[in-house]
Simulated assay, not measured.
Amino acid sequence: MVTIEGGPLQVNPVAIEPVICRNESTEIRAIPGGGSNTYQTFSWTSSPPGFTSSEANPVVSPVITTVYTVEVFDGYNTATGSVTVSVNQLPVVLLAPQDDPRVVMISPVEIGLCVYDTLTLSAGNPGSTYQWSNGSTDQTIDIGTSGISFDIQTYQVMVHDPITGCSNEGSITVYFTFQYCSYGIGEKESDDRLLVYPNPSVEGIFNIRIEGLKGETMLDVYTAQGKLIKSEVCSISPGSTYNSSLLLSRSGNGFYFLKLSNNEVVIIRKLIIQQY
């Protein structure tokens, strides 16, 4: 005969952190009691479904509020219990202006802007606290450049919601070029007076062909961070074609910017190195 002491089998699951932010984790514990005091199996499931575990105290990382149910077997009987982990969503930080006709959307985190323009970046989420990479703690910052030449600027901001306790970061890279100006010095990505090939280049070697231009012409290469890494001057006779090679084989994979400038035009080309 088997004698069971300690009352009927029961389970009272808890979460160490019952309220978390998205992308965080917490441990859930079964905490069985009574029955035989020898708990042989634990079987966890979730609602919404997708999580299972046979551990007594698993770690979970739900993306939305989730109910976890555990079934405990002590060799004779089973008992079930549930615990809820509430998930607060992170602040949504979208720094790229959506309705500004001056802004050219390159990607969700990259925009183009005329070198003469200034732009207000907003971290949104009123009532939050803000920490920008330039030191500002305001909801918005104004950005711009000298208006003289090509520039690349990158900004990050950390947004903290004091109500939920959750934080999230946003980032944006702004390319200031004449290409995005509707006035001033002409600059067009489609300008066929500058031909660069192959692009992408697997060796970091780009052939340059210039025609339809004349006079002293500057060729400058910048990294994605705006650092000048190569510069040369060529003199083009009227009616002639200029051919050269741009050697960037030691620069590593990634993208760069070639700026051609003379007294007639400024042309920007994005160069891509994809070495294997």
Rank of each mutant, 00 (worst) to 15 (best):
16 I>E: 06
238 P>Y: 04
142 D>L: 14
163 I>Q: 12
28 I>Q: 11
266 V>R: 10
247 L>A: 11
212 G>M: 10
47 S>I: 04
209 R>I: 14
245 S>F: 05
131 Q>P: 04
10 Q>N: 10
156 Q>S: 09
179 Q>F: 00
58 P>G: 08
75 G>A: 05
225 Q>M: 15
62 P>N: 01
134 N>I: 08
273 I>C: 11
211 E>V: 08
43 S>M: 04
269 R>E: 10
51 F>E: 07
151 D>I: 09
227 K>N: 14
71 E>G: 08
116 Y>R: 11
251 S>M: 14
198 P>Y: 09
256 Y>P: 04
38 T>L: 13
161 D>H: 01
267 I>D: 01
18 P>Y: 04
160 H>R: 14
259 K>H: 01
77 N>M: 13
213 L>P: 03
67 V>G: 12
113 L>E: 08
123 A>R: 03
176 F>T: 06
58 P>C: 09
63 V>R: 11
212 G>A: 01
263 N>H: 12
48 P>M: 07
69 T>D: 02
103 V>P: 00
195 L>M: 14
174 V>I: 15
221 V>N: 01
226 G>I: 10
95 L>T: 11
7 G>N: 07
274 Q>H: 07
268 I>M: 09
32 P>Y: 07
68 Y>A: 09
200 P>N: 07
265 V>N: 05
33 G>D: 08
143 I>L: 11
105 M>E: 14
276 Y>Q: 15
43 S>R: 13
216 E>V: 14
76 Y>P: 01
274 Q>V: 14
75 G>T: 03
88 N>H: 14
212 G>D: 04
73 F>I: 12
22 R>S: 14
181 C>A: 11
132 W>N: 08
206 F>K: 15
73 F>R: 05
243 N>G: 03
34 G>C: 01
86 S>I: 09
168 N>M: 03
100 D>V: 00
193 R>Q: 12
62 P>A: 07
87 V>D: 02
264 E>A: 13
79 A>L: 13
32 P>H: 06
21 C>F: 06
112 G>S: 11
118 T>A: 07
176 F>V: 06
90 L>N: 01
70 V>C: 06
40 Q>S: 11
166 C>W: 10
141 I>S: 01
250 R>E: 15
106 I>V: 12
91 P>C: 15
159 V>M: 13
35 G>C: 10
196 V>H: 00
194 L>A: 05
203 E>R: 14
205 I>P: 04
107 S>Q: 02
111 I>D: 00
20 I>G: 05
49 P>D: 08
118 T>G: 10
45 T>N: 09
39 Y>M: 13
102 R>V: 03
117 D>Q: 13
248 L>T: 09
258 L>R: 03
128 S>C: 15
14 V>I: 15
246 L>N: 08
62 P>L: 07
203 E>M: 12
21 C>Y: 08
24 E>V: 06
212 G>C: 05
238 P>V: 03
144 G>P: 03
159 V>H: 09
29 R>S: 06
235 S>W: 01
4 I>E: 10
24 E>A: 14
